[in-house]
Structures are given as C-alpha cells and as structure tokens.
Simulated assay, not measured.
Amino acid sequence: MQKTREEQIAEIRQRTGIDEVLIRELVFEFYRRIRQDDVLAPVFEERIADWDTHLERMCAFWSSVALMSGQYSGQPMQKHQPLPVTGAHFDRWLSLFETTAKELCSPPAAAHFIERAQRIAESLELGIAAHKGVMLKRGERLQ
C-alpha cells in the first residue's frame, strides 16, 4: 500500500530530524555565505533585489524538496536558464551547500539535503546547457 504524503513527510522527519525550523536555518545561513562568496555573490546580487522574498521562496522550495511539503510552486529551470554560469559555479554552489548542511544538520539530515542538492545542480546545469544549445555528454561540464 502506498504511503500518503503525510506519512512520507512523517517518515522523513523521523529518519532525518528535518523540520521547517532546520530548513529555514539552513537556507538563511547558506545564502548568507553565498552573498559573501567571490564566485557566487556577483551572480546573485545582480539578479536579486529583494532578498527577504527570495529567502522565503527558497525556504518553501527546500521544504518541498526535502519534505515533499508542496509549499513551493514555481519553475526553477526557467529562472536559471539565462544565468551566466558554468560548471565551476555549480561546483562552488554545491561545495557551499554541503559545508553548510554538514555544519548545521545531523548526518542523516545533511545526507538527505546534499543528495537532493546534487540532483538539483546536475539538472540545472544540464538544462542551462541545453538552453544555450550545448548537449553535455556524461561527465562533461558546462563551460
């Protein structure tokens, strides 16, 4: 028998300890670090005028990603396609995210967040490359 959304969320919470408070702490700290990062800050600062709104949107996004809460509705691929980024930007994004998650979260929660962040980064990099007319082969990175 398939679990309901509520049962799935309860299982994730029980297994990882992830809740909305932890998501908010992770999101706010991660973006604080991004805003101080030499590689990523220029990309974000040029495009985000209202950080409060962005952070609330990212909390809803990560709640949906980590807990399947359904709080986020949007089209992240469309927002990211025009960005002037390369594989190096995604590597830096993942590095900051992984460090932040490992510092703030229990090992099961960090692993849960990081696994999803890796999939998101890979998907966005492939989508941005395709939008630019570049078809990346397995193991290739966006230049």
Rank of each mutant, 00 (worst) to 15 (best):
Q14W: 07
Q14R: 13
T16C: 03
T16V: 05
G17D: 07
D19E: 00
E20N: 07
R24L: 08
E29C: 07
E29W: 08
F30Q: 04
I34D: 02
D38P: 14
L40K: 04
A41L: 12
A41F: 14
P42D: 11
V43C: 13
E46T: 06
E46H: 08
R47W: 05
R47G: 05
R47A: 02
A49H: 10
A49Y: 07
A49F: 08
W51V: 08
D52K: 11
E56A: 14
E56G: 05
R57Q: 10
C59H: 04
F61T: 00
V65I: 15
A66L: 14
L67F: 07
S69W: 03
S69I: 03
S69M: 04
G70K: 13
G70S: 10
Y72R: 04
S73N: 12
S73T: 13
S73C: 05
P76I: 15
M77I: 15
Q78D: 15
Q81M: 14
Q81V: 14
V85P: 03
T86Y: 11
G87W: 02
A88E: 14
F90Q: 04
R92S: 02
R92G: 02
L94M: 07
S95P: 00
S95D: 09
S95K: 07
L96Y: 08
F97I: 00
F97H: 02
E98S: 15
T100V: 08
K102E: 15
K102Q: 15
K102W: 10
E103Y: 02
L104E: 09
C105K: 00
C105A: 09
P108S: 04
P108I: 01
F113Q: 00
F113C: 00
I114Y: 05
R116D: 06
R116V: 03
Q118H: 06
Q118D: 01
Q118I: 00
R119M: 08
R119K: 11
I120V: 14
I120R: 02
A121H: 06
E122H: 14
E125N: 06
L126I: 06
A129Q: 02
A130I: 07
A130Y: 12
M135Q: 11
L136K: 10
R138C: 02
G139S: 13
E140P: 06
E140F: 12
R141M: 06
R141W: 12
